[in-house]
């Protein structure tokens, strides 16, 4: 672990000065890609903490007397979760097309880039549309947000996830806009690298939420037992 080595350095000793001259420890020019990656990684950590905390509160709530899971019985909405699977596919395709878009940007293939950027936007928007459709269906079938904690958490968690996706889309549109202005494939590729990381992260979060929100009462019992709730 480099950090432990770093923390053992004694900066007041003369040999530390000599060592620095030999190794030239730090580049003098700021690497913007590295800085952006650092910032994004910290941001992903922040978002992870947000969803982790929501999840912990959710798992605790699954054990309360008035909790009614959204799947398990034939009349419950996610016993058959086909529509959510369909939405997951949209997000998966968007995540793949964003990687391909980056590859094409590295190859400087304008047509390929444009097609794949469009595909990414389209499938991401399809995902959001699909999520909105599920919310409408839940409302129409009487699974209102306040009716049961499971419903509340479904709306809350998917809503938070959708907000993050929308924020990502806004940044993504900005990338496309900059690319159309300067046509720099190199910059586009480095930006798409970050976008791809964000998309994969949100896909991962979604798959986790998908599993969590469509589990039945028995599964929750097992998880709660495992977690000590």
């Amino acid at each position: 672990m480099q950090i432990f080595k770093t923390l053992q350095i004694k900066p007041w000793l003369p040999q530390e000065l000599e060592q620095e001259q030999e190794t030239n420890l730090f580049p003098s020019v700021l690497n913007r890609d590295k800085a952006a990656t650092t910032a994004l990684k910290f941001f992903l950590a922040v978002v992870s903490v947000i969803f982790l905390l929501f999840t912990i509160t959710f798992l605790q709530r699954t054990q309360s007397f008035d909790f009614q899971a959204l799947s398990g019985e034939p009349w419950l909405p996610f016993t058959n979760a086909d529509i959510l699977l369909q939405n997951s596919t949209y997000l998966l395709v968007a995540s793949i097309s964003i990687i391909l878009a980056r590859k094409f940007a590295e190859l400087e293939n304008f047509k390929g880039v444009i097609i794949l950027l469009t595909a990414t936007s389209l499938f991401t928007l399809l995902f959001i549309g699909g999520q909105v459709q599920v919310w409408q269906q839940l409302n129409q079938s009487g699974f209102y947000i306040y009716a049961n904690p499971a419903n509340s958490y479904y709306f809350l968690l998917t809503g938070m996830h959708a907000l993050h996706i929308i924020a990502g889309v806004l940044v993504f549109i900005r990338c496309i806009w900059h690319f159309l202005l300067d046509l720099s494939y190199q910059r586009l590729a480095s930006r798409l690298k970050l976008c791809a990381l964000y998309w994969h992260f949100l896909l991962f979060i979604w798959l986790f939420l998908f599993f969590l929100l469509t589990s039945d009462t028995e599964t929750f019992k097992t998880i709660a037992l495992f977690c000590g709730f």
Binding site: T6, N24, L25, F26, P27, L30, A35, A36, T38
Partner: peptide, 15 residues
């Protein structure tokens, strides 16, 4: 955090 981790002057080690 990004500035501290990525924009330090040459020779400005963490310690």
């Amino acid at each position: 955090v990004s500035t501290i981790l990525q924009a330090r002057a040459k020779g400005m080690t963490l310690m």
